[in-house]
Design a protein around this nucleic acid. Structure first.
Lengths: 232, 232
DNA sequence: CCAAAAGTGTTCTTACTACACCCATGG
DNA sequence: CCATGGGTGTAGTAAGAACACTTTTGG
């Protein structure tokens, strides 16, 4: 590695932290891991870790997601959220963290990783309701991540990231209802969502897994922006 | 400062870079500074610099904006844009930069700062049209900043950040036209913008600086979100 | 048959578009 | 007077909200 000159460039550590959201047991849940090191030993925190010397930020985020959870990472939407660099946010030293937002369909339960002794899915409302639960400034980061997810559901097809490969309109609607925490009229939602070009791709299959009349199964379409957008 | 342990925390330098946009001579312009140091000596770049050891990221951004340009910084909207950390983005060493987006009304011409020999406002289309003009990955950062500004005009009152304290509906419309690079019907725009609650606050004054019939002068209102949004 | 969920039709209302038209100033 | 831009009225259309109604399954 190139020589480091602290007199010119003040030394920072750089980490990535992950707001991983999924829908489990009809709740919007976030991934939290129990810390196995100081500081905040034994406290719950977002998954994350130090960026390696020759690693891109996106790469580090995806590596940490795989490492710290053991979850299959291919089907996960991952995007940069924001960076946090309060000088006092980590008592060890000056750390700037680049937070990422990940949205995943219902996955197997996570396993503990290298620096963590435990990992679990926790309902977002529980975490946000108790600001002191999470280590560092992770409560704030989680809040920012959830808010980002909420607004992106409005104008992108991102809700499909919470769904399995094939899903029904009702399952997609439940995603919106849970993330936005608001009831949605099933009839208008159906009309709207099937009308937006490129949001849904028909599979030809049906399912009765939700009871009642068989529902069409869809895959996500190629659209990257919703016209018109869904409104909260 | 706390002791640095490179064996545990790989050393990074952290910088802030600024996408500063304004409207000048009826063009959307970005602030660029000529580099007075290696690498990219003599090349144009975004304003920016190293974050100090005990300084928050937002503070660093506002400090650099003031320092590197000599511009009055109070009336400037500043928000975090994204972070960039490609291992090869700076040949000196590993640098992660946190980019900020600043929107300013037409300001006096900038002066050179400490690490820069020159500074100017350059039309955004010129800069984006020639990808090799800017140092580092600043062309990409500028593009991301402009795109952020474009979409934020849709659902926030941010267009007013380009206007002086008191402005007319026509001046506000011109902001939208220049940032979106699209013509807008003056009559419909007027009705729409005066109809959105909290976007504009009446001052009681009028002006004839645009010629023709005197126009009402407005200040920005208290609204933080536009209902309904402006659509491109 | 009934319950349950999928999906369609209809009506009302809001908001965008396009453009005709009038208003208030300077020269 | 005329030119210039400010501002209003109106008709047609796209899309959201509310909700009655029909369809297709399981039991």
């Amino acid at each position: 590695m190139r020589h480091y000159q602290p007199e010119k460039y003040p030394p920072f550590a750089v980490t990535v932290d992950l707001v991983v959201l999924t829908i489990r047991a009809d709740r919007l849940c976030a991934l939290v891991v129990r810390r196995g090191e100081r500081p905040y030993l034994g406290r719950w925190a977002l998954a994350g870790g130090f960026v390696r010397p020759d690693e891109d930020l996106d790469t580090a985020a995806r590596r940490e997601l795989a490492e710290e959870t053991g979850l299959p990472v291919g089907s996960v939407h991952l995007e940069q959220l924001a960076s946090y660099g309060d000088p006092a946010r980590d008592p060890r030293m000056r750390v700037v963290t680049v937070a990422y937002l990940a949205l995943a369909p219902d996955l197997p339960s996570p396993r503990a990783g290298t620096d963590t002794v435990d990992a679990k899915w926790e309902p977002v409302t529980d975490l946000l309701g108790k600001p002191a639960t999470l280590a560092f400034d992770h409560h704030r980061i989680l809040g920012d991540g959830v808010e980002r997810a909420r607004s992106k559901l409005e104008y992108t097809p991102l809700a499909t990231a919470f769904c399995p490969t094939e899903f029904t309109v009702a399952e997609l609607r439940r995603v919106y209802e849970l993330v936005w925490d608001t009831p949605i009229d099933p009839r208008n939602f159906h009309r709207k969502v099937t009308g937006v070009t490129g949001l849904l791709a028909s599979t030809g299959h049906t399912t009765t897994r939700d009871g009642g009349r068989p529902a069409q199964l869809y895959r996500r379409g190629e659209a990257t922006l919703l016209h018109p957008p869904m409104l909260r």
